[in-house]
Design a protein around this nucleic acid. Structure first.
Lengths: 143, 143
DNA sequence: CATAATTCTGTTGATATCAACCTATTTAGT
DNA sequence: ACTAAATAGGTTGATATCAACAGAATTATG
């Protein structure tokens, strides 16, 4: 019904597919590298986004990570169970939750950062364009 | 424990995070566009990868999509239930399964292609680099 | 040809992802 | 102040993702 040539074109051209593939491959790579500290790539990014002077709300974090609100709700649960974060009701606005790293969360993050640095350097070295900044700009525009 | 500047650096530099964000955003975008034909972006890519002269094995498809084998097993189930694909034991090698589009699967795919074309054009227009080929090359190298 | 290693896939359990629908709280309009 | 609209999150159900383990078939080796 659809010519094989169309399939080849879509397969080669589709940015959505290319990004999903790269996302899966990078996720596996960072998940593996971070396993010694017990974090996945997503948990690392999430914890890192909480390491700031004032604890952010869920909406702010979801937006930063380009992640659905409800995905974030689910992602927080294992981290809270493990005592790496605390979820507090915002006294200024009782609808809102404040997400706060615990000392244990901070410590885990501190162990993860050197691993991230090593891994990230070797990933940037893979780029044929040798231009990670441009890649980041393009990806940013897609978010 | 970790300085805020480190957080800012990781947040801005991490290719894994940038790719995950773009992957989520593009997935939402294509999922939404393809909803009228009842496919998600992943199902579209999967069905499209089955539209070839000879039905491929699972391993071949998983590798093409840079997807875990077992993820593929799970992804096939709803498509099989809906009668869009068939999973056949390879007569040449009884360990292997051959993945085959049904006529209904072909028809669904045919309806999806024009939607993909429209959506993909508007996505490419978002790129500040104006160079989708280079982006694809970089993403490919990461997979 | 027997058996050991390899290959292809499945199952289970955990987390990730989002749409659709829901409640509680805050804010805006009158 | 009262009510309507908007905002912040939560719950449920479906699919997606992968590691760890396991089974069945094939291939390689001696």
């Amino acid at each position: 019904m659809i010519p094989f040539e169309t399939t080849l074109h879509v397969r080669d051209a589709c940015l959505c597919l290319h990004v999903q593939r790269a996302a899966r491959a990078l996720a596996r790579r960072f998940d593996e590298a971070l396993r010694p500290v017990g974090l996945t790539n997503g948990q690392f990014s999430l914890l890192m986004s909480l390491n700031r002077p004032a604890p952010p709300s869920m909406g702010a974090v979801a937006s930063l990570l380009a992640m659905d609100r409800t995905t974030l709700t689910a992602a927080l649960k294992p981290l809270e169970r493990r005592g790496l974060i605390e979820i507090l009701v915002d006294p200024e606005d009782k609808r809102s939750r404040l997400l706060k790293l615990t000392p244990a969360g901070s410590a885990t993050l501190a162990k993860a950062v050197p691993i991230w640095k090593r891994e990230h350097m070797s990933v940037e070295a893979l780029l044929p364009s040798l231009d990670p900044d441009r890649l980041r700009q393009d990806l940013q525009a897609l978010s």
